[in-house]
């Protein structure tokens, strides 16, 4: 009798938490196989590199936004904060003539500062994340235009800056293996993000807050402080995306950026992170971002017009989230 109950309990308790990620990964593989058969131009080194490169900026942005989404929050400002960070990097390097590495750190700090302001208004003033980051989105957009004088800032004086995105350290080491640095930075950022979220105290609080903020507060956790820190982490990733973007275009374009936040959020959601908070992984986000770029790239190669590509991505988001809901219902 006792053994039987234990057996039953084991069955009842057996739920596979990795399933959604597995689903996402499976769909990515299926997409790659599909496009490889559909077009001979898809599965070759240069196209794959192209896909990875086009994933890098949105991918880094999505990594950052994963953190706030896991707390049950949202950050709508990452698109324009990314632009502001790019502009600030341009100001530091081109206008003030500071060394490149200072400019990069300046870009990251710009993101962190914006994250701090969002986090402060959310955690201290109690403004809902949607509203607070919507305001930050506009503030950053405006500031980027004001500071740049609405004109792009070019990094022509500094060849090194462009190398950050488009050079290839790997290509120098292994001849022919010309994977751009931006891709390397993306994967490195993913590893760091993954460790932060899964292995450190801030990650643990991140999930706790997303799972039940009030219970976490009543466990004696200084939830306000940690939320501000988490929004700052998102900000640092956003700043990094800004630097990558600026380097890739070799200029800071103050009018770019709007809409990037929604693509980043879409990547996070496709990767199985719940907008209700408490659930999510960085690996999922990476896969989500890759699915989006593989789709757009593959459809383009199959000569599907760009407008239709967007329509397809919309349906994929619905499909991904519905699959998640189905899985939850079963569990």
């Amino acid at each position: 009798m006792k053994a039987a109950t234990a057996e039953i309990q084991k069955k009842r308790f057996a739920v596979n938490p990795r399933l959604q990620q597995f689903l996402a990964f499976g769909s990515l593989i299926l997409l790659v196989i599909f496009f490889s058969f559909a077009s001979g131009n898809f599965f070759n080194f240069s196209n794959i590199v192209g896909i990875l490169l086009s994933t890098a900026v949105i991918g880094v942005l999505a990594l950052g936004v994963t953190f706030v989404i896991v707390t049950g929050g949202i950050d709508l400002s990452v698109g324009t904060v990314m632009t502001l960070s790019a502009v600030m990097t341009g100001v530091f390097i081109t206008i003030w003539g500071l060394p490149v590495w200072v400019g990069i750190i300046g870009g990251l700090l710009t993101g962190a500062l914006c994250g701090f302001v969002s986090g402060f208004t959310i955690a201290r003033l109690g403004i809902p994340p949607f509203i607070a980051t919507l305001a930050m989105m506009m503030i950053a957009k405006g500031l980027a235009l004001v500071i740049s004088g609405t004109k792009p800032i070019y990094f022509t004086d500094d060849e090194v800056f462009m190398e950050i995105s488009l050079g290839s350290v790997l290509g120098d080491l292994i001849p022919g293996f010309n994977i751009p640095n931006a891709v390397l930075v993306f994967f490195l950022a993913a590893v760091i993000g993954s460790l932060l979220l899964a292995r450190t105290i801030v990650g643990r609080y991140n999930f706790a807050i997303g799972s039940n903020e009030e219970a976490t507060r009543l466990s004696g956790v200084n939830v306000r402080k940690w939320k501000i820190i988490i929004y700052m982490i998102t900000g640092v990733f956003t700043g990094l995306a800004g630097v990558l973007m600026a380097s890739r275009l070799n200029s800071a374009q103050p009018s770019l950026g709007m809409g990037y936040e929604l693509e980043a959020i879409a990547a996070v959601v496709i990767g199985g992170t719940s907008l209700n908070g408490g659930k999510g992984t960085i690996v999922g986000t990476v896969i989500g971002a890759l699915i989006m770029s593989v789709l757009t790239n593959g459809l383009r190669i199959m000569s599907v017009p760009q407008e239709w590509q967007t329509v397809v991505v919309g349906f994929v988001i619905l499909l991904a989230v519905y699959a998640d809901i189905l899985r939850r219902r079963k569990a």
């Binding site: 105290i201 801030v202 643990r204 706790a208 799972s211 956790v221 408490g278």
Partner: peptide, 27 residues
């Protein structure tokens, strides 16, 4: 009281997480 979606281990540790770190916030 409960973090229902989280495991027993985290629920036991949540009020004392700082004690379970090895430095630099590593758990």
């Amino acid at each position: 009281g409960c973090l229902l979606e989280m495991d027993v281990k985290t629920n036991v540790g949540i009020a004392a997480l700082e004690r379970f770190t090895k430095g630099f916030g590593w758990m």
